[in-house]
């Protein structure tokens, strides 16, 4: 699956003043890539992720996924596209407190009216993969942050999506649990060949990616892959920028 953004601009009206969260942004992401999108706060990272995931539409330009222009899809078609192709992982997990772990993971499958038996099998498999098979009947609020994020990842994988969009997946976790989550994402990328796009401003997290896209003021500042260059140097320069 190829993700392409062409001259994408996203403008918000802040009071009376228009604010360009993204400005004529162009990127291409190939199937099977693990991409980290980095940048300072307010750079437009999360907005980009929302546009790629079809949660929102660009003000100008287009987002193409396998040559399908998102803005040409109806609201319902976009929802169905999201349901079958995109898995979301959020910084604050976004789990439903009134549903059990098992039910939370099953949500995309319930939305798709998958048979009960298949839901049961698939959810159990995912929870086992995440090491949460014993917490299936628990409610999210009794789990640790790391466990909750693993539930969120399991939910993101439930519909067997073609790419995973993770917005600061380690932002609410301590170093140890953050590392666990990143290792899990890397494993999914390596073993299951999932396309992963991860927004982060954590240098260590970005270090797990194959490619790092730096965004500043709504535009791509740099786009580097491991094969092409020294990602460590990029990270160091980002660090310097970030500290400044």
């Amino acid at each position: 699956m190829m993700i392409v953004t062409r001259q994408v601009t996203k403008t918000f009206i802040n009071g009376k003043e228009p604010f360009h969260a993204l400005h004529q942004l162009n990127i291409k992401i190939q199937k099977g890539e693990f991409v980290a999108i980095m940048g300072p706060s307010g750079a437009g990272k999360s907005t980009l992720l929302q546009l790629i995931g079809g949660l929102d539409l660009p003000t100008e330009g287009e987002v193409l996924i396998d040559d399908i222009a998102m803005h040409q899809l109806s609201e319902k078609e976009r929802t169905l596209f999201r349901r079958r192709n995109v898995g979301f992982v959020f910084q604050d997990y976004q789990l439903i407190s009134t549903l059990t772990v098992e039910e939370n993971v099953a949500l995309p499958l319930e939305a798709d009216h998958v048979s009960r038996l298949e839901i049961k099998t698939r959810v159990l498999k995912l929870l086992t993969l995440m090491g949460l098979e014993n917490q299936a009947q628990q409610f999210p609020n009794v789990l640790s942050g790391g466990q909750q994020q693993r539930v969120a990842i399991a939910r993101a994988l439930a519909a067997n999506p073609r790419f995973i969009l993770a917005d600061e997946p380690t932002g609410n976790l301590d170093r140890k649990r953050g590392t666990e989550i990143l290792q899990l994402l890397t494993k999914l990328h390596k073993e299951e060949r999932h396309t992963i796009i991860m927004v982060t401003h954590d240098i260590l997290a970005a270090g797990y990616a194959d490619r790092i896209i730096m965004i500043k003021d709504g535009s791509v500042q740099s786009d580097t892959t491991r094969e092409e260059g020294d990602t460590d140097a990029i990270l160091a320069s980002f660090m310097a920028e970030y500290k400044r």
Partner: peptide, 16 residues
């Protein structure tokens, strides 16, 4: 609201 938003994000249609 957050939960409903999340449900829409993971693929629930408006009608659902």
């Amino acid at each position: 609201a957050r939960e409903l938003g999340m449900m829409r994000a993971v693929g629930f249609t408006r009608w659902q």
